[in-house]
């Protein structure tokens, strides 16, 4: 899978990866925001009518309600996005729901002025209709930025979902006790395999068991095994392993690695 990555260099000299938000998720975020706006305006409209009604359709109250309505519709239309992106640090209700955040192209949080630029220019992006200009720009721009983003120097990334530590810790390694070791695997120098790759192989087996990679499993299995073989300096051997023995081999290698780990302890 090709992911569009944005790499941020922190002052501490460490890279942090962000995944750049694509057209689809951003479109849905805008859609959600527009629905919110619509609902909010509908409620305000109903409130206004209720007040007009309560005043027995008094003309002066009617004018007052219309005046406030004009102002509120204008403010919600032009300042909804600016307001939320400033006060929620680059997020609006729609972006928060979709897990998106606007950041500067240097990875820092966006400033009030940049929020104003990208959202005042939203109107050009929405030309001729349905964000046509914005879509075209995003399509040709490697970081999927619309015109407003280009002028403000911002981009939209997937906010890194909060992975809980408990989920990271919770490595359910599948039961391999029933695996029968074959001679070929017993001869392999598995001690050359790094812990990192071992864990990756274990993750692969777990996901395979849970059926989370039904169709792509076979292809990934071949890659997995050849990575394992490469670390054992047997670069070309993996090609000769038949389709049906791919997963058994990986299981056996993992089992041997587990046994090694145990004996070390």
């Amino acid at each position: 899978m090709i992911e569009d990555k944005f790499v941020l260099d922190t002052p501490e000299n460490v890279h942090v990866d962000f995944e750049i938000a694509g057209i689809g998720s951003r479109f849905f975020a805008v859609l959600i925001d527009q629905i919110w706006l619509f609902v909010a305006r509908l409620l305000l409209g109903m409130l206004g009518f209720a007040i007009y009604n309560a005043s027995d359709f008094d003309d002066e109250t009617g004018i007052l309600v219309l005046t406030l309505g004009t102002v509120l519709i204008f403010i919600t239309g032009w300042f909804y996005f600016i307001f939320f992106e400033i006060s929620w640090n680059g997020q609006t209700p729609g972006k928060r729901y979709m897990g998106l955040r606007v950041i500067k192209t240097n990875g820092l949080p966006l400033s009030a002025s940049e929020a104003a630029i990208r959202n005042l220019l939203r109107i050009v992006d929405s030309l001729p209709s349905l964000y046509g200009a914005g879509l075209v720009t995003m399509f040709f721009q490697p970081q999927s930025r619309r015109l407003g983003d280009l002028a403000a120097g911002t981009l939209v990334v997937f906010e890194q979902t909060e992975v809980s530590l408990d989920r990271v810790k919770d490595r359910e390694w599948i039961d391999l006790s029933h695996v029968v070791m074959s001679e070929q695997v017993l001869d392999l120098p598995v001690e050359k395999i790094s812990a990192s790759l071992h864990y990756m192989a274990e993750d692969f087996l777990t996901r395979l068991r849970k059926d989370q990679m039904a169709s792509s499993g076979k292809m990934v299995a071949r890659q997995m095994l050849s990575s394992l073989y490469t670390q054992m300096n047997l670069t070309n051997e993996a090609v000769h392993v038949s389709e049906s023995s791919l997963i058994p081999y990986i299981s056996q290698i993992c089992l041997r690695l587990r046994q090694m780990e145990k004996s070390e302890e």
Binding site: Q160, V163, L165, D203
Partner: peptide, 16 residues
């Protein structure tokens, strides 16, 4: 040490 591990993606997210 373990670029592909989920500990790394956890840390990536934490630092971000």
């Amino acid at each position: 040490d373990f670029p592909q591990d989920r500990v790394t993606s956890y840390l990536n997210q934490l630092v971000g």
